[in-house]
């Protein structure tokens, strides 16, 4: 192994994709368990149960453990959402990887052109970017980074990550 990192595929997560006017979404999803929405682009807000990622002008992702998916669906009620917003369950659409350890940033430097230094990509940074030529979600976590890609690219991403660490 070339770098001091641990690369692992993570378990399925519950994910909801939210798009539309921020106020309309906040009015639709009211729940005491939810954290506030992030106030800076490409950042996340986390509480013990849920994470909210601000990834586009009118685009957010909500994430939780898969065990809380039903709770997430109750809160967001995708099938009854008003016409001005989009609420879509995308749990199966993403596969997550964790790159952790002292050299995690070295792997991300190989994978993506994004400036992942703390000044540009803060502790709660999260952003879509180019990861080995694929659109992927890059998330900073405690001891490294998480990467989420569309499920069909998961095996390819696993292969790329393994080769980057070869």
């Amino acid at each position: 192994m070339g770098y001091d990192v641990k690369i692992q595929r993570l378990a399925l997560n519950a994910m909801i994709d939210l798009q539309g006017d921020a106020e309309a979404i906040k009015n639709w999803i009211k729940d005491d368990d939810l954290p506030e929405f992030p106030n800076k682009p490409n950042t996340s807000i986390t509480n013990q149960q849920f994470k909210i990622y601000w990834v586009g002008i009118e685009h957010w992702l909500m994430r939780s453990e898969i065990e809380l998916e039903d709770h997430l669906l109750e809160m967001t009620n995708p099938s009854a959402a008003p016409i001005e917003i989009s609420v879509v369950q995308v749990s199966d659409a993403f596969k997550f990887f964790e790159v952790s350890g002292p050299d995690a940033a070295e792997i991300i430097s190989i994978a993506s052109p994004i400036d992942h230094h703390l000044t540009a990509f803060p502790e709660n940074g999260v952003s879509f970017t180019n990861i080995f030529g694929i659109k992927g979600l890059l998330i900073r976590v405690n001891n490294g980074f998480e990467i989420a890609v569309e499920s069909s690219y998961a095996d390819l991403m696993a292969d790329f990550l393994q080769k980057a660490n070869a």
């Binding site: 682009p41 490409n42 586009g56 002008i57 052109p113 994004i114 400036d115 540009a120 952003s127 970017t129 180019n130 030529g133």
Partner: peptide, 8 residues
């Protein structure tokens, strides 16, 4: 929205 990003 995102800040400076590479052309790719």
């Amino acid at each position: 929205f995102c800040g400076p990003r590479n052309e790719v």
